[in-house]
């Protein structure tokens, strides 16, 4: 197991004003797995990401990376945020943005530059590397953010609704980019999204969260061919079935508010 999340809970406030953002999350991720997390709006997906990455301290539970308990933000994680405008530093070029996290790793200069070039090549933005982020389109900026995470060579890549702020066509391109990058870098990915199609298209496994108090409602293994295509894969009957199932689960949970035990099934 690469990442183990057990009994994770998060409460804001105290006493009567307490808000339980996350009830109880148990989740495990194997190496080289692509796991998507979906859930109804406001179910605390971003809070979950922040707790996992160490940006927020959880109230209960723990997260273990390769068996070691995490406190604060661990070295082996990289996070791609939804809002690239508030994450990429506008005062330096794209190259500098990607270089910055590598600097404290005390690598050789040559090695650092190699990593940067490789990452930028992987996301297909070699010609934009010396431009400033604000000179690039939204999709290109998010690619830079992904390149930054890749160059960092993390154990696990976390993504918090990374494609929510770009248009639909760019989103499709970026999804395919992730699948491409997977083969090249053999990364492990935990992706949080509100887009059901995306969660099924990208993932090996979909984790469906419930409404508040959030817990893992269901985990579905995605039994689709490894080589995915925006048109062909989405035409498959299995895709439609999975999609309908996930959609129903989420919609159902938006209506009701009952606690359920986590169910693991091959649906």
């Amino acid at each position: 197991m690469l990442l183990e999340i057990s009994n994770l809970g998060k409460v804001y406030g105290m006493g009567r004003n307490a808000v339980e953002a996350i009830g109880r999350i148990d989740l495990s991720i194997r190496e080289h797995e692509f796991v998507s997390v979906v859930g109804p709006s406001g179910c605390g997906k971003t809070t979950l990401m922040k707790c996992i990455s160490g940006l927020l301290e959880s109230t209960t539970g723990e997260v273990r990376l390769r068996g070691k308990r995490i406190s604060g933000t661990p070295e082996g994680m990289a996070l791609v945020f939804q809002e690239y405008g508030r994450s990429l530093f506008p005062w330096v070029t794209a190259r500098e943005n990607i270089l910055l996290p590598l600097k404290h790793q005390r690598l050789d200069k040559r090695v650092m530059n190699e990593r940067v070039e490789e990452a930028v090549d992987a996301v297909g933005l070699a010609e934009a590397i010396d431009r400033y982020p604000w000179q690039l389109s939204g999709g290109m900026q998010q690619r830079i953010a992904i390149a930054r995470a890749l160059a960092y060579k993390p154990e696990i890549l976390l993504m918090d609704e990374p494609f929510a702020s770009v248009d639909a066509q760019t989103r499709a391109d970026l999804e395919d980019l992730l699948l491409l990058v997977r083969r090249r870098y053999s990364i492990t990915l935990l992706l949080v999204t509100h887009d059901i199609d995306e969660s099924i298209y990208i993932g090996d496994r979909v984790v469906i969260l419930s409404g508040a108090p959030t817990h893992v409602k269901e985990e579905c293994v995605i039994d689709l061919p490894g080589l995915r295509d925006q048109v062909k894969t989405k035409e498959l009957q299995e895709f439609a079935r999975l999609r309908a199932h996930v959609f129903t689960q989420i919609r159902h949970d938006r209506a009701s508010d009952t606690k359920k035990q986590a169910v693991r099934s091959t649906c």
């Binding site: 070295e75 996070l79 945020f81 530093f89 910055l100």
Partner: peptide, 20 residues
């Protein structure tokens, strides 16, 4: 806060964080 979170996640701290 987005910049601060980014710095935290990628391990940029202390004087480096201040300067850059």
């Amino acid at each position: 806060q987005g910049f601060l979170d980014t710095a935290k996640v990628f391990g940029i701290k202390g004087f480096e964080r201040f300067r850059r």
